[in-house]
Nucleic acid binder design. Structure first.
Lengths: 231, 231
DNA sequence: CCAAAAGTGTTCAGCTTACACCCATGA
DNA sequence: TCATGGGTGTAAGCTGAACACTTTTGG
């Protein structure tokens, strides 16, 4: 048998990717949703998604979908898992691969395509979404929490330079807790992966807070030596 | 447009499931592989897999594939993630959803279908597998380690009744470490989810070791009260 | 000068880790 | 009786959590 015909008796399926896009505005963790202007479920809130093409990997498809909405490449993007209930999409059988992305909304706010009627929702105030998208969001949040505990992905949600109070608010909104600022600073600085700058950010206070930068090289060193950090 | 025709301009893909089947023989953590008796890559070692049917969910497909090989239902099975590089399968574009399963090989050793030339490999001695299957196994092992740290899934790899030395060996083989037995017993018993039986297992020692049973109700109570345990 | 946010150390409790000897029994 | 694996307690160090006051400066 021709190699290309080996599987021809098996069914084929539509495959899509759906993106859970997280952002942080300095106060709350946010989710970017779109208002569907196309059937099925037209007019309802939804995650941004798209169908998998013939010649792109699923990761490439996720990046493409993300770029169609936000105009940006090179963001943190990680696959969650596949969703494949038979009737999850009323229009047809579709296997969807959920990805979650972390972006800094401030940096890209003008890039988000108006074509999709996108809107940021505070986590906890996310509306009912189509299909199984709410389930995906819940799972993505738990994954984000876990990632933030063992890897420095939180920084993806902040600008290049950030203050410790900003970082603390980010962690507090991700984990829906409050932390003692002395303990938080002690812990985060003890990791030795932040570089203190000589500059202060003075927009949110009169005194001003020192800016820091995440030092990827120091983090990579730690990882090479097998040290996993916890926050 | 007819709802069933909404997606007709999008490509469709073969979708498969692949199962990483872990077992524990009392000494080592094992992986169940099959020798492919069919193309492509005939004769090579592979994970057990199968194509997704028209009217089954991906979870159902994974259970079906697992049952075809092992003859068993109702085992621990969890999805890892999807794999979708364009050329991961030389025969055709196939999107695969990887699942990992935990079984107690002793209980099912006669049920494993001889049709697939299956063999248990000790982790660390797994041969080169077809496609991206080695990558899936690595990922599954890391997921298993994480699961075992926060949920009592290790018990899935043991018989209903087990001794503490057996349990310790299991954890040691999963995490490739050794533990101090006093500390291990203290920690595991302090969780309060094990029921000590009056019976001893005397096959591996003259003195005999007490048998224990995992008490799911106690564990569920803990979970309800929001206590996540760590081992 | 005062309101508002940034920055700073110490103490205590609980947990983790290290560590050594006796017990029961089949051969 | 002895070899083999099962079972037990304690002390030290470390980590995480609780806690209050001073500093800076724009308005």
């Amino acid at each position: 048998m021709e190699i290309s015909n080996l599987y021809k008796h098996h069914p084929r399926h539509y495959v899509s990717v759906d993106c859970i896009i997280f952002g942080f505005n300095g106060e709350d963790l946010k989710l970017l949703c779109i208002k569907r202007s196309f059937p099925p479920e037209m007019g309802k809130w939804s995650l941004m998604g798209g169908f998998l093409g013939e010649n792109e990997s699923i990761d490439e498809a996720a990046y493409r979908v993300l770029e169609e909405l936000t105009g940006i490449k090179h963001v943190f993007l990680e696959q969650l898992q596949g969703y494949g209930s038979v009737n999850r999409d009323p229009a047809a059988r579709v296997i969807s691969l959920a990805y979650y992305a972390l972006i800094n909304p401030g940096e890209y706010k003008d890039a988000i395509s108006p074509h999709f009627s996108a809107k940021w929702f505070t986590l906890g105030q996310v509306p009912e979404l189509v299909f199984d998208h709410n389930e995906m969001v819940d799972k993505a949040l738990r994954r984000l929490q876990r990632r933030c505990k063992t890897q420095p992905v939180g920084f993806e949600l902040l600008a290049d330079r950030f203050t410790l109070p900003q970082l603390q608010k980010l962690y507090e909104s991700i984990f829906r807790m409050t932390y003692d600022k002395r303990n938080f600073r002690k812990k985060i600085l003890s990791l030795g992966i932040l570089q203190k700058l000589d500059e202060k950010e003075k927009e949110t206070s009169k005194k001003g807070a020192y800016l820091y930068r995440f030092e990827k090289t120091k983090y990579d060193d730690l990882m090479k030596r097998g040290i996993h950090f916890e926050i």
